[in-house]
Nucleic acid binder design. Structure first.
Lengths: 188, 188
DNA sequence: GTCCACATGTAAAGGGTTACATGATTTT
DNA sequence: AAAATCATGTAACCCTTTACATGTGGAC
């Protein structure tokens, strides 16, 4: 149930409407905790009912500006400090690796090579973001933004190296098997 | 919708009952694609209805042994080769980093240090698993198992290094701010 | 005869995605 | 005047988790 904490976290930096928050989710939280419009409005309603946020002001077009309450801030800090973070156990990417023996070495190598390419692409995008956000925010905000970005850079770099290494191992198996395939052809 | 492909993948290695599959999910797929008993039986029912698997034999205690069909194998290969893997976008661990400025440098550093410790622990567990599975299975199976395990090792190693680096950066900020805090204390 | 492992299923609730639905301001 | 943006809300469906529910066969 981290959506609520993402919302509380964003509101801890200042009041915002559901619409505002949605933009933030699309822009900066896209790669960390995506959320849809339906989800957001529903969660804001629940948070307000439970007293963790409150409507601080109303604007044109039914705009409701939400503000975090002291109770909300307490919940945010409690979550940050006392609740241990959930590990990300599911990985579609890795699940496929387990079954790659079903498609032969050529296709398997292709899969791993595409993973490597994707990692390079993501890494480049993060480098672009880093250029863009350099020097923004105060000391603490910049630091934690940097730390998060650095994780993305290290993760994509590691993924590239691993995928290339793995593709190499599959290629080696391919070579080993090549003589056997020639033998099989000769037998025809 | 990868649960279905996980099931097809397991059945591609040979027939099994829902109960058997559940044990496999708990043992080997625990860190890649966890699934519960309810989910499994429901999915097997759907897969059978759609003709991707079939009941090959019935045993004692209502045991139904499922077998993958040619259609199921085709779906598995299609998924492996033609459907691009979904990226894991949500990260509870990283979401918290964005809001660490809410809890002060001490608690923030503590959070990162605990992440590092956890990464070390997970890394050690994977090393243990590697010792245990060494030399099991045929060439292809061993290779892909190795590749998956290697990802786990690299990921946990990277996480440890990153978390320690990050904790260091927070400690540096703490030092920078220490004189200011002394000043603040003097003013009282 | 009791206990454990085997074996399957259903129900309720939570969280997420997609699609539907509507309307008010501001910009061009 | 039209188009884009702002702004909120609801409904249906899918996947996952937790809990409930039941019964059989083998081992000791």
């Amino acid at each position: 149930m981290s959506l609520r904490h993402a919302v509380l976290g964003l509101l801890s930096a200042g009041p915002a409407s559901g619409y505002d928050l949605l933009k933030t989710f699309e822009l900066s939280l896209e790669n960390v905790w995506p959320a849809t419009q339906s989800q957001l409005y529903a969660e804001l309603g629940r948070l307000a009912q439970e007293g963790l946020v409150r409507v601080a002001a109303e604007g044109p077009r039914g705009r409701k500006e939400y503000e975090i309450t002291e109770e909300g801030r307490a919940e945010l800090r409690h979550w940050l400090v006392e609740v241990s973070p959930a590990v990300n156990r599911r990985s579609d990417m890795l699940l496929r690796v387990f079954f790659l023996d079903q498609v032969g070495t050529g296709a398997a190598r292709g899969y791993l090579e595409r993973l490597a390419e994707r990692a390079v692409h993501e890494h480049d995008q993060l480098l672009g973001i880093r250029e863009f956000v350099i020097g923004q925010g105060d000391d603490a905000l910049r630091l934690y933004g940097d730390i998060a970005l650095e994780w993305g850079l290290r993760l994509t770099a590691a993924q590239r190296e691993w995928a290339e290494w793995a593709a190499g191992r599959v290629a080696a198996l391919e070579q080993e098997k090549a003589p056997e395939q020639e033998k099989a052809l000769e037998q025809k």
